[in-house]
Write a protein that binds this DNA or RNA. Structure first.
Lengths: 360, 360
DNA sequence: ATCACATCTGGGAGCGTTACCATGAACGCC
DNA sequence: GGCGTTCATGGTAACGCTCCCAGATGTGAT
């Protein structure tokens, strides 16, 4: 009686188990496991028999059981700040993909940029029993968050911080070089009077981009000729701040023929302001951005910009984190493994940049 | 020897198990499980003792074990189409949150809008052993995808389809009423000459919004007065199509004092085009959108628009799906449970709408 | 007192997989 | 020809939790 009740319970599951496959293929469950997990130490004949059985029965391994047995399936935290960041969507796609590959769970936590909120968000993650945390921008720069996480001895990966932090792992692009290349590109187009809109001052990527810009100017002997500094305005990565900066820059005499904004939102704002003043882009003004977020290809003309492979960076971050977690389990090592990965960027040429009409 | 090796393996896990808590609290593991899972049938005294032990040991249940034992932890698929949709980010946040709550895994699959690609994407999901699928727009309207999923007898939830489909569950807002309310709002502001930009013709939400718009006009006796149809242009939800539509609408004589675009991207395009013509928004032209996506609050002036609680809708979709999956396991029922949920929308008033300067 | 019933707790099996041996066969190598 | 080595496979015991029962106790109706 009790026996049959048990078997009823089992049969409720639609699932084909590893044992069913083993029986069908005439081998032991262990061998099936080896085949499924791609171990060597299985003869070709056996492997093929198992694979056929898998196909015939449409077997697919039970994730929970696998995680339990192999002590995987941990939770990783993703602490995100500014939800209006167009980063998030692509970031999540990459992160989820990598998480699924490793069989780990991803736990999101939103966090306002105040110290109190940061602390609380980290506590919530800890309560959620995460074993590692990914920090996309702008939280990757928050010393409060980082301190809190270090105190909990959790491995942390920052993404897209302009400069590597010593106490975390990191994935980023070379902001300096990217800005340098973009500026060179503008100069090669023939622009001589270039302007720059800086990004938010407390993100280190902003400074890197600015340095890349000035380096290219100096290289071309377009700056530092004694008299005046290059045309520059401080922005804060928001559309609104881009609008303000554009107004000032376009009022300069003579106005720049090209404006390099530190991100796409500000570049879009420059285009909006230019249109408002009756300027055609790129005929009368070249505008370029940085990041290649959604808005870059939404607006018209589409933005020439620097592409960060955000999804890939997110995936790499998860990879790094999983590696660190497994390593720590084996050897109780320090969470701060100074691993940093530099991901290649790309200059995406669209319609917002062209040669100036008259040499400026 | 073998014994100590085993215990070594166990101790590698940092984890506190349910047994540790049980010992500490002086009860059985079963009772701890009940407390943790919020069962009644636990006395208050016991409950508190257990809770204290949980806190002291920082116990957190092992997800994999829990999923295995309770036959949860299934994979749900999320098939997304247009990755440039600003929907995705918010959608994923809501979906992930709900997925974590139910302890299910979320598997993403991207899919181009061609029949072949759709078919392949569905196959990939099936190969990934998902037991249910969420379809955000625009895939929720794809008959190919729906047919393929129905053939696999998978429960499906569509999100934000304008009209409920008979063969799936659905979560949506009332597009018709939302458009009606927005139009009434414009009329109440004093606008008499209104124009509309339709959305993509093969999404049923587009038609619903258009119907809501015309209904409000008729209600106010601003349309159907015999002579001419209301000012309208066909758009395709893209910025570019909004630009084209705006050009035509603003060339009308007399031009409209308010333009209602079927989504935010097109509304943003209308603003861009208006600025280009030297029109101030909202002084010279009122522009409103629909969806309240990222761009609505990015641009300047910020858009008055209809807010869809996307994250909440995604979460509801996951809830529905999990419910259906569990139900099917118990009774092998039909996957097409005609459950449809209507989520409340909201009119978000920002800076892009105002009373017209002169009564139009 | 007896019985039905709800409340509370524990024992033991089982979820599906992989880790850790053990075993046997084949293959050199001195 | 014995002896290590690598390869190929299987048996068994976990992994940590929840489900299904079975008691145990209390409560009110008969």
């Amino acid at each position: 009686m009790s026996k049959s009740a048990r078997s009823t319970r089992r049969r409720l599951r639609g699932g084909v188990t590893i044992k069913d496959v083993a029986r069908q293929a005439g081998v032991s469950p262990m061998t099936v496991s080896r085949v499924v997990n791609g171990s060597r130490y299985v003869s070709d004949a056996t492997r093929q028999a198992v694979q056929r059985a898998v196909r015939e029965l449409k077997y697919s391994p039970n994730l929970a059981a696998r995680n339990l047995a192999s002590e995987r399936g941990e939770r990783l935290g993703l602490l995100y700040g500014n939800p209006s960041s167009a980063y998030l969507s692509e970031f999540l796609v990459g992160a989820l993909d990598a998480a699924a590959r490793h069989g780990v769970q991803l736990v999101l936590e939103k966090c306002e940029p105040t110290p109190g909120a940061s602390r609380r968000a980290v506590r919530r993650l800890l309560a959620g029993a995460v074993v590692g945390v990914v920090l996309p921008p702008p939280l990757c720069e928050s010393s409060v968050v980082r301190a809190e996480l270090n105190a909990a001895r959790l491995p942390v990966v920052t993404v897209a911080a302009g400069r590597p932090a010593a106490d975390t792992m990191g994935v980023r692009i070379d902001d300096y070089t990217a800005a340098l290349e973009m500026t060179r590109y503008l100069i090669r187009l023939g622009h001589r009077r270039l302007a720059f809109i800086k990004g938010h001052p407390n993100q280190s990527a902003s400074e890197e981009r600015w340095l890349g810009f000035t380096a290219a100017l100096e290289e071309a002997r377009l700056a530092g000729q004694g008299e005046r500094p290059p045309l520059m305005e401080q922005g804060f990565f928001s559309f609104r701040s881009g609008l303000d900066a554009a107004r000032k820059l376009l009022a300069a005499e003579p106005p720049p023929t090209a404006i390099f904004a530190s991100n796409d939102d500000m570049a879009a704002a420059v285009i909006a302001e230019a249109h408002r003043r009756g300027l055609e882009v790129p005929r009368d003004l070249t505008v370029v951005g940085f990041d290649d977020t959604l808005i870059a290809s939404t607006i018209w003309p589409e933005l020439t910009t620097i592409q960060q492979p955000i999804a890939r960076m997110a995936a790499e971050a998860i990879d790094l984190l999983v590696g660190a977690v497994r390593r720590m389990r084996r050897s109780a090592a320090d969470p701060a493994q100074r691993v940093h990965r530099l991901i290649p960027h790309a200059l995406i040429s669209r319609q917002s940049a062209a040669a100036p009409r008259e040499r400026g």
